[in-house]
Amino acid sequence: MSTDNNTHPAAPYQLNLAQDLTATEQEIIITHLQLLPSDYIKKVQKLDSSAIPLTDSGVIIKQVVDGRGLACPMPLLKTKVALRNVAINEALYIIATDPNSQADIVAFCQQNWQTKDSSCLQLLVNHSTTKTNQPSTDASDTASFDTIFHFIITKTDSN
């Protein structure tokens, strides 16, 4: 589902990881994108100064929100905070395990799309789920999750 009609790239998506993502953030993104069906993601490219994409070559992921193990409304609140650091035409990748995050994030994007303000949001990959067991972000314990929800939100121009 997209909050936009037909202005987003068609799946499979090409995703570009911004230069300023840390190695840990890149690893989280790549690891979790590999869990998605192959028809969702065409290519994931790490950007550096020699690999600057054209505007139509895919989505540039600027930040990641790891909401695994967080109960509602924390994944949405972390998403709102992270979007402050995402510029127009850049994206935020969110992973969450709380089923309520699916409705919360979709509604948030739809609400922002309808307001037509300068921070319009476009939800490119909506509630793609994968069933998996993943280690928690804390190295001292492990958490088992049945479903991981994947979201990619791109901040778009209001025009």
Rank of each mutant, 00 (worst) to 15 (best):
E27C: 13
P99K: 00
P37W: 00
C120H: 02
S144V: 15
S101M: 07
L21W: 01
L76D: 03
R68S: 10
R84A: 13
I41E: 04
T142P: 13
N159A: 07
H8T: 15
Q134A: 13
S2A: 11
V65W: 05
A139P: 11
L15S: 01
D104P: 11
I152K: 01
Q122T: 13
A91I: 15
N126M: 10
S2K: 04
L77M: 07
A18M: 05
W113C: 12
N126P: 11
W113A: 12
S136V: 12
A82V: 06
E25Y: 02
I152W: 00
R68T: 14
G67M: 09
Q34C: 13
S118V: 14
Q122I: 13
V86E: 00
V59K: 03
L76Q: 04
M1I: 13
I28W: 02
A96M: 11
H127C: 11
K46T: 13
T130P: 10
W113E: 12
E90Y: 02
A51F: 04
S2M: 07
T3M: 06
D48W: 02
Q102E: 11
Y93T: 12
N5L: 11
A91D: 08
P37H: 00
T79S: 04
V44A: 01
H8I: 14
S119C: 08
L70V: 10
V125T: 10
A143G: 10
L92P: 10
V59W: 01
L33V: 11
D98V: 14
S49I: 13
I152A: 03
A107D: 10
Q34L: 13
L76H: 03
K116Y: 03
I30R: 02
L123D: 01
M74E: 08
A71W: 03
V64A: 04
T156G: 09
D4L: 15
K46D: 06
A143T: 12
Q26F: 03
H8L: 14
A143L: 11
Q45I: 15
D117E: 08
K131N: 08
Q45W: 00
Q102D: 13
L76K: 05
P53H: 00
A91F: 07
D157G: 14
D20N: 14
V64G: 02
T130Y: 01
K43I: 12
T142V: 10
L47Y: 00
S49D: 13
S136T: 15
N85A: 10
